[in-house]
Amino acid sequence: MILDALFLINALLAVGFAVAMITRKNPIYSALCLIATFFPLAFIFLLLWAPFVAMIQIMVYAGAIMVLFVFVIMMINTEKQELEAGKPKWYRRIAGAIAFLFVIVGFYSIVMGINSIAPVDSSIKEEFGSTAALGHLIFDKYLIQFELVSVLILVAVIGAVFLAKKNLD
């Protein structure tokens, strides 16, 4: 019961901040709301017995990626006028309506799905979601995927360096 309540509170918070993020006009506030979204998300991971993922969620997203976002927003320092959007066009209204529909569906599934989510499942072992269990999965079962991700990061690094470097020779 208390877990359900915690889940509901965090789910609502996460969705609320996410909505706030896309409705803010000032990008810094959007970033702030996005950061705020990560905490209830991390909490939901905790409720799902995944403390490692929860911590990584905060560490990587709030602690690193958003730092870069904020850095870039501060660097660009957009003027107020540029931020003022024009009158909503008809397709924007449609997009807004569809997004609203998604929000309603999201809330509906949260409320309906709350009974089907049972974090304290007797079949879940103590070490499920622990750092060690995750390590075994990554370096054993999903080894090839893990190695491929390193290739992916290599590509990204080469690309970033190539595109951003001033003089290549």
């Binding site: 929860a54 911590m55 560490m59 709030a62 602690g63 730092v67 904020v70 750092t131």
Partner: peptide
């Protein structure tokens, strides 16, 4: 159980 990760995660927030 994830103590040190928690410290790293939260500790990095004071940057904001």
């Amino acid at each position: 159980n994830v103590g040190i990760l928690f410290i790293l995660a939260i500790g990095s927030l004071n940057f904001y």
